[in-house]
């Protein structure tokens, strides 16, 4: 991999990140769509941008040669989902029952 190709990666990443950020910010004020739709799109933008940063800035990809850290990322994501999901499930349920 040479300088030009690696540089291109950063530039692509930057452009994509800027686009996604722009969409998310724009949707916050642009109120022609229902809140629910915009809510979902904004969250989707965040997740996409996460992937963009991973791919282009942190150079994480699905290549075979460095599986250790990929496994670790997936496992971390899984644990975070469990912990955060469980916490929100329990606490929101409690809030609801105390209404």
């Amino acid at each position: 991999m040479n300088l030009g190709r690696e540089l291109r990666k950063y530039v692509i990443g930057m452009v994509m990140a800027l686009t996604l950020t722009g969409i998310a910010f724009a949707l916050t004020i642009w109120n022609y769509w229902p809140v629910r739709t915009r809510f979902i799109i904004i969250i989707a933008c965040a997740i996409l941008q996460l992937l963009v940063h991973f791919r282009y800035f942190l150079h994480i990809d699905l290549e075979k040669s460095h599986r250790d850290d990929l496994q670790l990322i997936l496992f971390s994501a899984f644990i975070i989902a469990l912990m955060v999901g469980g916490m929100l499930w329990v606490i929101f349920n409690l809030n609801m029952r105390m209404m």
């Binding site: 950020t21 998310a24 910010f25 949707l27 916050t28 809510f39 904004i42 969250i43 933008c45 965040a46 941008q49 996460l50 940063h53």
Partner: peptide, 10 residues
């Protein structure tokens, strides 16, 4: 990214 999304934008 998550701070500006979940805290500010939403």
């Amino acid at each position: 990214i998550f701070i500006f999304t979940f805290v500010y934008l939403l």
